[in-house]
């Protein structure tokens, strides 16, 4: 109910945050939006000796940079949801953000915190893998960019090295005509997903599938990239009930979700088929012919 005592340091720049993190060692934790970390501290599941508050380390305004959308780590979920730049360049991110928690969580929660936390049920990690996004990190030995597909490793574990912080996330701008969908299965509005599916589809001039990206989340240790499985069925073919259902079946076979409080593993596995099919069809419905730029 009450966090145990800790020291607090506010970082006013990312390099300073890295320096503080190095000094703090293993007992130090980065505080961004705090919507996952602080409840864990209140329940004493996390007892860091030092909190490094990075809220002052940079800005939180997404922007376009040469064909990519750069989302600074401190971008709040509510900003993702509302930002005209994001809605224009990568609407699936805005959609995914809208599924996160409640309005208060979205006001404080940040994309940097979300990816560093690496909750397998996180909406943004699932979307970033589908988008072939990347995570910019800064550490003692400088900056590096890690592909989202490599960044999320297992439950609450990322490719971040000690002393590294997430400074931004970047994704390719979604070409006009590219269809997208983000769906999730929940038991109650605002809750963590039991199953997530993110799909991106490009159609060729004939309306056949030119390229498909498909990721499912919340059903394993990290987001599961099923783009190859989807491509094997859909590539150069039409996306309809039958083909989408076939991808759903294969997706279901490819995952093995554990039992959770609100859904057994078997149920969630079955639902992967449903949500993959629905996401593919929704994305295809949004896609324009010849959208594959």
């Amino acid at each position: 109910m009450y966090p145990s005592l800790f020291d607090y340091a506010g970082a006013t720049s990312w390099p300073q945050a890295v320096q503080l993190l190095q000094e703090g060692g293993e007992e130090a934790k980065v505080l961004a939006g705090g919507q996952s970390l602080v409840p864990m501290m209140a329940l004493r599941l996390a007892t860091p000796a030092l909190l490094i508050d990075v809220n002052g380390a940079g800005d939180g305004e997404p922007r376009r940079e040469s064909g990519r959308l750069v989302v600074p780590a401190l971008t709040r979920h509510a900003t993702l949801q509302r930002s005209v730049v994001v809605r224009d360049a990568c609407p699936i991110l805005a959609e995914a953000a809208s599924w996160i928690g409640n309005i208060r969580v979205r006001h404080r929660g940040t994309i940097g915190g979300s990816v560093a936390h690496a909750d397998p049920a996180g909406e943004l990690p699932c979307s970033l893998v589908a988008l072939e996004g990347a995570v910019r990190v800064l550490g003692p030995s400088g900056e590096r960019i890690i592909a989202a597909s490599n960044f999320f490793q297992t439950y609450f574990t990322t490719a971040l090295e000690p002393g590294e912080v997430v400074t931004a996330v970047e994704v390719p701008v979604i070409a006009s005509g590219r269809g997208w969908a983000f769906l999730e299965l929940i038991r109650r509005v605002g809750d963590f997903a039991l199953v997530e599916a993110a799909a991106l589809i490009d159609l060729d001039d004939a309306g056949q599938c030119a390229r498909v990206r498909l990721t499912v989340g919340a059903v394993g240790e990290r987001p599961v990239d099923l783009s190859d499985e989807a491509g094997a069925v859909l590539q150069n073919g039409s996306i309809d009930e039958a083909s989408a259902a076939e991808v759903g079946r294969r997706a279901s076979a490819a995952v093995d979700p554990p039992d959770a409080v609100h859904g057994s593993g078997a149920y969630r596995r079955e639902m992967v088929a449903v949500y993959v099919r629905r996401a593919l069809l929704a994305a295809a419905a949004r896609a324009g012919r010849g959208g594959a730029a």
Partner: peptide, 9 residues
């Protein structure tokens, strides 16, 4: 968070 009492929605 795991006690699913209904929300307005």
């Amino acid at each position: 968070a795991d006690y699913l009492m209904p929300t307005s929605a």
